[in-house]
Amino acid sequence: MRRTSEARSEATDADLLGELGLMHSNSFGWALLCCNHRRDEAEEVLQTAYLKLVEGSARFSGESSLRTWFFGVIRRTASEQSRRRWMRNQIFDRWVVNRPAQAATPDPEAVALETEGSRALLQALARLSARQREVLHLVFYQELTIEEASRILKIRLGTARTHFERGKRELRKMLAGPGAQHERK
């Protein structure tokens, strides 16, 4: 009996691992967005999220899809690490090392690899509010529905829709060119 449950658990773990492997590149994209496109931080966040899953501190109950649930874990992990990093910058760098707290800047390596179109899109996304940016990423980049996005972000469907529509409008204006941006200002 025990052996059967262990075998089932191993099979489930293998399935889970397979699914995680398939969506790894998308998970990394989401982690990048949650970390303001800082590659090192995104890797660390994703690794911690995997660790949470393996250790069992984050458990998939099957209430939503694996992707919706895991993206929620990534978002929460990114937020925890960002808070921890801020504390470390404030306390360690300022008071112990006496170095001014470092401002968060995008990874230069990642910036060098971006094409012109992607850079423009990322710059425009950076000007949007965090919620709008997240909803647009989840819908366009991850190809999720607005409902799934609302579940990941833990907001109401109506709120997610509003962020989506407003974000889309703002993004279009910004991508239309610098002339359009000046008009907006």
Binding site: F28, V54, L121, F140, Y141, K168
Partner: peptide, 27 residues
């Protein structure tokens, strides 16, 4: 138009993504 732009970004970032095994095994 937005969908295409995001798809291009996804392709670029997907190419830069670290290997799944490397992240998973070094945990």
């Amino acid at each position: 138009d937005l969908h295409d732009r995001f798809a291009a970004l996804r392709r670029e970032e997907g190419a830069q993504a670290p290997e799944f095994a490397r992240l998973f095994n070094t945990r």
